[in-house]
Amino acid sequence: GSMEQGFLPKGWEVRHAPNGRPFFIDHNTKTTTWEDPRLKIPA
């Protein structure tokens, strides 16, 4: 929902695949990933 959306880094969006699995869109680089960007520790 909109709650989890608010925690994503700037430029990211979460969508759900037809099977219900969430995936993440990085509008900054125009890419998608199954990995939650929030789980990655910034270098």
Rank of each mutant, 00 (worst) to 15 (best):
residue 24 F to W: 12
residue 27 H to G: 06
residue 26 D to R: 00
residue 25 I to Y: 15
residue 30 K to F: 05
residue 32 T to A: 10
residue 26 D to P: 00
residue 17 A to D: 15
residue 30 K to Q: 13
residue 18 P to F: 06
residue 40 K to C: 15
residue 24 F to R: 00
residue 8 L to M: 08
residue 36 D to M: 00
residue 31 T to M: 08
residue 38 R to S: 05
residue 37 P to N: 01
residue 9 P to G: 03
residue 13 E to W: 02
residue 38 R to G: 05
residue 43 A to T: 10
residue 27 H to E: 06
residue 14 V to S: 03
residue 3 M to L: 14
residue 14 V to D: 01
residue 24 F to G: 01
residue 24 F to I: 01
residue 40 K to S: 14
residue 22 P to I: 14
residue 18 P to I: 08
residue 28 N to Y: 06
residue 15 R to I: 08
residue 24 F to N: 01
residue 33 T to Y: 09
residue 42 P to K: 11
residue 6 G to N: 10
residue 10 K to G: 09
residue 3 M to I: 13
residue 16 H to E: 07
residue 20 G to T: 15
residue 17 A to Q: 06
residue 10 K to P: 15
residue 31 T to R: 08
residue 9 P to N: 05
residue 29 T to N: 09
residue 10 K to I: 09
residue 7 F to V: 14
residue 10 K to N: 12
residue 26 D to A: 01
residue 2 S to P: 12
residue 16 H to F: 15
residue 35 E to S: 06
residue 4 E to H: 14
residue 8 L to E: 01
residue 9 P to F: 03
residue 7 F to H: 14
residue 8 L to T: 01
residue 9 P to T: 04
residue 20 G to S: 03
residue 12 W to L: 04
residue 36 D to A: 00
residue 12 W to K: 02
residue 42 P to R: 10
residue 22 P to H: 15
residue 8 L to F: 06
residue 6 G to H: 12
residue 20 G to Y: 01
residue 21 R to S: 07
residue 4 E to F: 11
residue 4 E to A: 14
residue 4 E to V: 14
residue 19 N to Y: 00
residue 21 R to G: 06
residue 26 D to E: 02
residue 6 G to K: 09
residue 7 F to P: 15
residue 17 A to I: 03
residue 37 P to Q: 01
residue 20 G to A: 02
residue 36 D to R: 00
residue 14 V to F: 01
residue 18 P to W: 06
residue 28 N to C: 15
residue 8 L to G: 02
residue 22 P to M: 10
residue 27 H to D: 04
residue 11 G to S: 02
residue 32 T to W: 15
residue 30 K to R: 09
residue 3 M to W: 13
residue 4 E to G: 13
residue 9 P to R: 02
residue 32 T to V: 15
residue 28 N to I: 08
residue 23 F to G: 06
residue 40 K to R: 10
residue 40 K to D: 09
residue 15 R to E: 05
residue 43 A to R: 10
residue 28 N to G: 04
residue 41 I to C: 15
residue 3 M to S: 11
residue 38 R to Q: 03
residue 29 T to V: 02
residue 27 H to A: 05
residue 35 E to N: 09
residue 43 A to K: 11
residue 15 R to G: 08
residue 41 I to E: 10
residue 16 H to A: 07
residue 15 R to Y: 06
residue 23 F to S: 07
residue 43 A to M: 12
residue 4 E to N: 13
residue 3 M to P: 12
residue 31 T to P: 01
residue 13 E to D: 02
residue 39 L to E: 08
residue 19 N to K: 02
residue 26 D to W: 01
residue 34 W to R: 04
residue 19 N to F: 00
residue 22 P to L: 12
residue 41 I to A: 13
residue 4 E to S: 13
residue 39 L to D: 08
residue 32 T to F: 12
residue 42 P to G: 11
residue 36 D to L: 00
residue 20 G to I: 00
residue 10 K to C: 15
residue 17 A to K: 04
residue 37 P to C: 12
residue 15 R to P: 02
residue 27 H to P: 05
residue 36 D to W: 00
residue 18 P to E: 10
residue 9 P to K: 04
residue 13 E to F: 02
residue 35 E to G: 05
residue 29 T to R: 05
residue 18 P to Y: 06
residue 16 H to L: 15
residue 5 Q to I: 14
residue 2 S to Q: 13
residue 26 D to L: 00
residue 15 R to N: 05
residue 37 P to R: 00
residue 22 P to A: 09
residue 34 W to C: 08
residue 30 K to H: 14
residue 26 D to Y: 03
residue 3 M to F: 14
residue 2 S to N: 13
residue 1 G to W: 07
residue 2 S to M: 11
residue 39 L to N: 10
residue 1 G to I: 13
residue 30 K to L: 08
residue 38 R to T: 05
residue 36 D to K: 00
residue 29 T to L: 05
residue 7 F to Y: 12
residue 13 E to L: 01
residue 27 H to R: 01
residue 17 A to G: 09
residue 24 F to A: 00
residue 16 H to G: 04
residue 38 R to L: 03
residue 17 A to Y: 06
residue 33 T to V: 06
residue 17 A to W: 05
residue 19 N to Q: 03
residue 1 G to M: 12
residue 11 G to C: 05
residue 27 H to C: 14
residue 35 E to H: 14
residue 33 T to A: 03
residue 33 T to I: 05
residue 1 G to S: 12
residue 32 T to L: 15
residue 36 D to Q: 00
residue 28 N to Q: 06
residue 38 R to H: 04
residue 27 H to T: 09
residue 12 W to N: 02
residue 3 M to V: 12
residue 39 L to P: 08
residue 28 N to A: 07
residue 9 P to W: 04
residue 23 F to W: 05
residue 43 A to I: 12
residue 5 Q to K: 12
residue 24 F to Y: 13
residue 32 T to H: 07
residue 3 M to Q: 13
residue 31 T to F: 07
residue 10 K to D: 14
residue 4 E to P: 11
residue 41 I to D: 12
residue 40 K to H: 14
residue 43 A to E: 11
residue 39 L to H: 09
residue 19 N to H: 04
residue 25 I to R: 01
residue 6 G to M: 13
residue 1 G to T: 12
residue 3 M to A: 12
residue 4 E to K: 10
residue 11 G to I: 00
residue 35 E to P: 02
residue 31 T to K: 09
residue 33 T to F: 07
residue 13 E to N: 00
residue 18 P to S: 11
residue 42 P to S: 11
residue 1 G to H: 11
residue 30 K to M: 09
residue 39 L to T: 13
residue 15 R to D: 04
residue 16 H to S: 08
residue 21 R to E: 14
residue 42 P to L: 10
residue 5 Q to G: 13
residue 12 W to T: 03
residue 28 N to H: 06
residue 2 S to L: 12
residue 43 A to D: 11
residue 23 F to M: 10
residue 1 G to D: 13
residue 5 Q to P: 11
residue 21 R to N: 08
residue 5 Q to Y: 10
residue 36 D to V: 00
residue 25 I to M: 05
residue 15 R to L: 08
residue 30 K to I: 04
residue 23 F to V: 14
residue 31 T to W: 05
residue 18 P to K: 13
residue 43 A to N: 11
residue 22 P to F: 07
residue 10 K to R: 09
residue 26 D to F: 04
residue 23 F to I: 15
residue 1 G to L: 13
residue 33 T to H: 09
residue 17 A to H: 08
residue 3 M to T: 11
residue 28 N to P: 01
residue 12 W to V: 05
residue 38 R to A: 04
residue 20 G to W: 00
residue 9 P to I: 04
residue 5 Q to A: 12
residue 1 G to K: 12
residue 12 W to E: 03
residue 41 I to Q: 13
residue 18 P to M: 07
residue 21 R to W: 08
residue 37 P to K: 01
residue 40 K to L: 10
residue 6 G to L: 13
residue 14 V to C: 15
residue 7 F to L: 15
residue 24 F to V: 01
residue 4 E to T: 13
residue 22 P to N: 07
residue 35 E to V: 10
residue 38 R to W: 06
residue 24 F to E: 05
residue 33 T to G: 04
residue 18 P to R: 10
residue 21 R to A: 07
residue 11 G to R: 02
residue 8 L to R: 01
residue 39 L to S: 10
residue 5 Q to H: 13
residue 37 P to I: 02
residue 6 G to Q: 10
residue 31 T to Y: 06
residue 5 Q to R: 10
residue 27 H to M: 09
residue 39 L to W: 10
residue 24 F to T: 01
residue 32 T to D: 03
residue 42 P to Y: 08
residue 36 D to G: 01
residue 14 V to T: 05
residue 33 T to R: 04
residue 8 L to N: 02
residue 38 R to E: 03
residue 31 T to S: 08
residue 6 G to T: 11
residue 28 N to S: 06
residue 17 A to T: 13
residue 1 G to A: 13
residue 12 W to S: 02
residue 24 F to K: 00
residue 35 E to K: 08
residue 28 N to E: 07
residue 34 W to E: 05
residue 23 F to D: 07
residue 41 I to R: 10
residue 1 G to V: 13
residue 43 A to W: 09
residue 5 Q to L: 15
residue 38 R to M: 05
residue 40 K to E: 08
residue 22 P to Q: 10
residue 6 G to Y: 08
residue 37 P to D: 03
residue 36 D to F: 00
residue 33 T to S: 07
residue 40 K to F: 11
residue 43 A to H: 11
residue 42 P to T: 11
residue 21 R to T: 10
residue 24 F to D: 06
residue 11 G to W: 03
residue 40 K to N: 11
residue 16 H to T: 14
residue 10 K to V: 10
residue 38 R to F: 04
residue 6 G to I: 09
residue 22 P to Y: 08
residue 33 T to Q: 09
residue 36 D to T: 00
residue 19 N to A: 01
residue 2 S to D: 12
residue 34 W to T: 05
residue 32 T to Q: 10
residue 6 G to F: 08
residue 32 T to K: 11
residue 2 S to A: 13
residue 30 K to E: 09
residue 27 H to Q: 06
residue 19 N to E: 02
residue 37 P to H: 01
residue 34 W to I: 03
residue 22 P to G: 04
residue 28 N to L: 08
residue 23 F to L: 11
residue 9 P to L: 06
residue 28 N to M: 07
residue 34 W to A: 03
residue 25 I to L: 05
residue 3 M to N: 11
residue 22 P to D: 12
residue 20 G to E: 05
residue 27 H to Y: 07
residue 34 W to G: 03
residue 39 L to A: 10
residue 33 T to M: 04
residue 15 R to H: 08
residue 22 P to E: 14
residue 14 V to I: 13
residue 20 G to M: 02
residue 13 E to V: 01
residue 29 T to Q: 04
residue 21 R to Q: 12
residue 19 N to W: 02
residue 2 S to W: 14
residue 2 S to V: 11
residue 17 A to V: 04
residue 19 N to L: 01
residue 20 G to V: 00
residue 13 E to C: 04
residue 33 T to D: 04
residue 29 T to S: 08
residue 19 N to D: 14
residue 31 T to C: 15
residue 12 W to F: 04
residue 36 D to H: 02
residue 22 P to R: 09
residue 11 G to P: 00
residue 41 I to M: 13
residue 16 H to P: 02
residue 13 E to Y: 03
residue 8 L to D: 02
residue 10 K to E: 15
residue 14 V to N: 01
residue 14 V to K: 07
residue 23 F to E: 09
residue 9 P to M: 04
residue 21 R to Y: 08
residue 31 T to L: 07
residue 30 K to P: 02
residue 14 V to Y: 01
residue 16 H to Q: 09
residue 23 F to T: 07
residue 17 A to P: 04
residue 26 D to I: 01
residue 6 G to W: 09
residue 14 V to Q: 09
residue 24 F to Q: 02
residue 32 T to G: 06
residue 16 H to K: 08
residue 29 T to A: 05
residue 15 R to F: 07
residue 26 D to K: 00
